[in-house]
Design a protein around this nucleic acid. Structure first.
Lengths: 201, 201, 201, 201
DNA sequence: AATGAATGAGGGTTCATTCAT
DNA sequence: CATGAATGAACCCTCATTCAT
């Protein structure tokens, strides 16, 4: 017999998940404000009212989209980095992981890059803390690389992280908005190359 | 005697400009969707209806915000680059110019980074073409640097540009959303440093 | 051995009663329209759906509140009046009984005075008939007093009853809405005094 | 040339007045909660949105109904009382004035007796203060009658007022709800008679 | 008998936009 | 030209009610 967390059941979780997936798709396609709860409900194959049984507001629904995905991504990233020893390879892994994750989850990418990033209320969310941890992880990789003499000492890890994440985000947004290139992952090698050259001796 | 385009007068232009400045301020503060035409009208000290004498829709008003500012920025950038010979200094000039421009025009930055960037309709705008020219300019600087042997040959100018713009944007958005650091320009030196090391021999 | 009406059991009755008491409290506090079935269910410690096992609609639940209370009050009033011979004392007893009953059942008073009294559907209810009987009782006391020469002959019992009930209701509503005076019963003596002087020779 | 209060015009006032009259009618007929803004708008021959140009909420619209009517009634009552010297006649005038006013304004009566009287928010309204003044006026008439030796000294003006208003209200509500009698004013003489006998020596 | 879950129906309110003046 | 005034069109959200379990 399976056990579930108190107050949840597989059925409930499944439906909640279905709503979130529907919201992800709809918000990604039409944007948060252009999309209506009815759109999401229709996509999920349920009624408007049902959405409010699971989420207290449209914004809460939006903020619930990253949820597990973000947690999973964090766990996955940690796992990968644990398997890599040297910093250059770690940086490449980060860049590759981000780019391929976004490519494989374009709706999620849309929402993360184009909707949530500019929402000030999101900053006070629990999920945002998870995402911050991911950022912190990158910071630590760089810091660690400096400590171990793999990277130059005269760099600011925060700036390096900004260069890494900024490059990724710029390319992903370009991909989302213009559809170019077909696969943003093709750039991961070169981005890594430039950045590594930039931060190594 | 000054000459004006047919159908315009300094008075008209002044009012149009007042509306745009009001919109810039209001949209930056509250966001495009949360802000209302009434908010903008109040800020401009005119009536709602008057706005529609100058702009056909709320979105057109939004798209009109970059307008001259973007054109001026493009001109200014061209002018600066014309005065610099070597590519490394040009790249630094670009980074510095962007960062300082955003710092000095935070409302414009908000709108460019957080609102327009995710609007697909904006892509079909004339103003967007001006902004693309700016991007093309950067591309050309890099291309030119490669041709002249200042930069490595094995880089993709598009990727380099993405690294440059992405880094800038990431830091500016961070500054806009979190208020940190006080002055994003402080990073221009280091960003340049990393990127230059990344793309030079 | 106790007997119950077919289809009911003490358990059922107890639960039904619990719901009614919860409804009384909630409706009195928040008003009928502001209160939700969920509020009532929460107060009763049961689920929303269960309420519909006992009552067909929110309004039927409202109309069920007087129920026994009204029947009991009628019985009680009858009993008291049976023990009093002269009309003046009967009138005083009526006024005192109403005021003290409302004071002791403020939630019931709220619902009777502020909610049910203005509901036209309530007029078609069985319970309303019980309440009308109470009114008829008062009418008869006055009529009887006239017949027996205790009260003036040139009065309309209906008007007298209106004066009696109107005075009571006005004071009770004032008490419910403004909280003044602390105890409305203090007025019973004086109301009686004025009315009796008004209707006796 | 006519002058109008700042910020108003006859047109605006006329429309505002039309909305209020429509609301009065609709709320009286269907009750406040059963009635919708659309109902009111339809009755007024305007759109829903227009109502919100004049009133900030449905409740504010409700609270605006007494407005001038209440002020006029107060003025009228004052005027009448000024023309009467002796207290008994004043009391009769009060009772007659109320009953005839309600009879002639049944929609207003409905709203005052059945809707507003039970609304706690209404107590914090400006209009409510006007209505309280009316009540105070009655209080003063009684007080004055006692001082001048026209009424017994052993009565509480507040109770007398409650008897007066309570009787009136009870009869008016009965009339509103049951439609009986055809004309509530017919009772004014007898109510006065009973109450006067009750409070005079 | 009790309820968790779902929903239809509707309602108040907002707001971009129009147009007569 | 500017605007006061009006509104159509939506949208988010609530809630009484139902029904399968």
């Amino acid at each position: 017999m399976e056990q579930h967390a108190i107050g949840t059941s597989p059925k409930i979780e499944a439906r909640r998940s279905k709503i979130i997936r529907a919201a992800q798709k709809v918000f990604a396609q039409k944007g948060f404000y252009e999309a209506t709860i009815s759109d999401v409900a229709r996509e999920a194959g349920i009624s408007d009212a049902t959405i409010y049984e699971y989420f207290t507001s449209k914004e809460e629904l939006l903020f619930s989209i990253p949820g597990e995905t973000a947690r999973d991504a964090l766990k996955n990233m940690k796992n990968i980095l644990d398997h890599i020893i040297d910093t250059p390879n770690k940086i490449h892994a980060i860049i590759y992981a981000f780019l391929s994750f976004y490519r494989d989850n374009p709706d999620y990418a849309s929402i993360a890059m184009l909707i949530l990033k500019q929402n000030k209320n999101f900053l006070e969310t629990q999920v945002y803390q998870d995402i911050r941890q991911l950022a912190r992880l990158i910071y630590e990789v760089i810091q660690c690389g400096m400590d171990q003499g793999e990277l130059r000492k005269d760099i600011d890890p925060l700036v390096v992280r900004s260069v890494i994440l900024g490059s990724i985000e710029h390319l992903v947004i370009r991909w989302l908005m213009l559809g170019k290139p077909n696969d943003p992952v093709i750039y991961s090698k070169e981005i890594t190359d430039i950045i590594l050259k930039g931060v190594m001796f």
